Amino acid sequence: MIRKFFRNLSSIDVAIDLGTSHTSVYIRGEGLVYKEPSVISLRDIGYKKSILAIGNEAFQIMGKEPQGVETIKPLQGGVIDQLEATKAMLNEIAKRTRIHRFLKRPRVLIGAPYSISDVERRAVIDATSILESPSVTIVEEPLAAAIGADLDISESIANMVVDIGSGITEAVVISLGGIVHSESIRIGGDAITESLVHYFRNHCNLIVGERTVEELKPGLCDVYGQFEQSVTVKGIDVHSYLPQTRQISSRQVKDAILGPVSAIIRTVRQMLENTPPVLSGDLIDRGIILTGGSALLQNLASLMEASCGVPVKIAKDSAGATLRGTSRMLEEMEVIRMVSA
């Protein structure tokens, strides 16, 4: 009894979704305690850098930095790009969420793309060392997303999940709690944002920041371009360098986003072509489940269904599927044992 008391006192279970776009933290028994952009602003102080802001505050600063301030997105393409900045961000998140508490050392489950290299996987472990955890378990994000989408991955029936994040798209076929086959491409929502930035500059003579484009994407990007939706875009004229506005329609930008969208769909088609025939029948019956924040791109599911000939559905709260699945693993430890087996 005394031993159990000290074990409960000395540990805290934490699930982390360390994404290119957002970082989310779930604490067992408390729920979601943090969900903000994966952004950090640093200020130069002599030979050192101090944290000026993280998350939403840093996102608001992006593109407006005064001299001596740098705003960083430390994750790119679904993996850690700047290790020290990632550590600093996680350390600040730990302080805000009170992960480090009296006599408590967090046990951590953290999501990572299935397709990352051993070096990239070690970087994830290294980044979480700032949390001083006695136990860090890496969970494949597509598996976590499948669990978060309420799929029973323990069945011998195949399920196909396409996780479309900001920096990476992963398509996997899951059966008996494991990944049977996978395809991935380092293209996601960020590539669509970048394509729009280039389009505005080259075709509309307007310099627009990434933060502005991110805010415009939900109402502007329609991969079919069938419906005429117009939005007002604010930026800097490339010739006069004065503030200007333009009326841009969804049909205008359709071709601009066609490149990254087509690359995502080609990856899904390649996945279907390489899936073992014995599992293909299950996929025809069950279809494809889309997860990730970029799965909400207007008419993406319809375009993918027309291109692949397989039913496509978007998971409920697709952007939060990975964290929801990882948090379920904390609450239901048998899920971890099944996935890790």
Rank of each mutant, 00 (worst) to 15 (best):
G235C: 08
G309R: 10
L242H: 14
S307N: 14
I314G: 09
Q247S: 15
V238M: 06
T267L: 05
G293L: 01
D222T: 05
P218F: 01
K316C: 10
D255S: 15
Y241G: 11
E228R: 12
I288N: 01
H239K: 12
E215A: 11
L290M: 00
S262W: 07
L220Q: 02
Q229S: 15
T322Q: 08
K217F: 04
L220W: 00
S240E: 07
G320E: 13
G293F: 00
S262I: 11
I314R: 08
K217Y: 04
E305C: 05
L220P: 02
T267R: 00
G309C: 11
S318G: 12
R286Q: 08
G235I: 04
K316V: 09
R246S: 09
Q298K: 08
T232A: 09
D237P: 11
P276L: 11
A301H: 05
V231G: 11
S240T: 15
E215R: 09
G320S: 15
P260I: 04
A263K: 10
Y224L: 11
G281I: 03
D285Q: 12
E305P: 06
A256T: 12
G309Y: 12
S307M: 09
S307F: 04
L323A: 14
E305D: 06
I288Q: 01
R246M: 10
G225V: 03
P277Y: 13
M304K: 03
D237M: 07
G287S: 06
D317R: 13
S280H: 15
V268L: 08
S294V: 06
Q270C: 09
E210I: 05
G287H: 02
G259I: 12
V261Q: 01
P277S: 14
F227C: 08
T212S: 12
E214M: 01
G292A: 05
V278M: 15
S262Y: 11
L300G: 05
I236D: 11
V223S: 02
R211S: 09
R211C: 05
A301E: 02
S318M: 08
L303H: 06
I248Y: 08
L296H: 00
L258H: 13
G287V: 02
G219R: 01
A256K: 08
R211F: 01
A295P: 04
A295R: 01
P243T: 08
I257C: 05
S249Q: 09
T322G: 12
F227I: 15
Q270V: 09
G225S: 04
T322N: 14
I288L: 07
Y224S: 02
V268R: 00
F227H: 13
P218C: 04
I314S: 07
P311T: 08
K313Y: 07
I314L: 07
I284T: 09
V310K: 07
C308Q: 02
Q229C: 11
V223D: 01
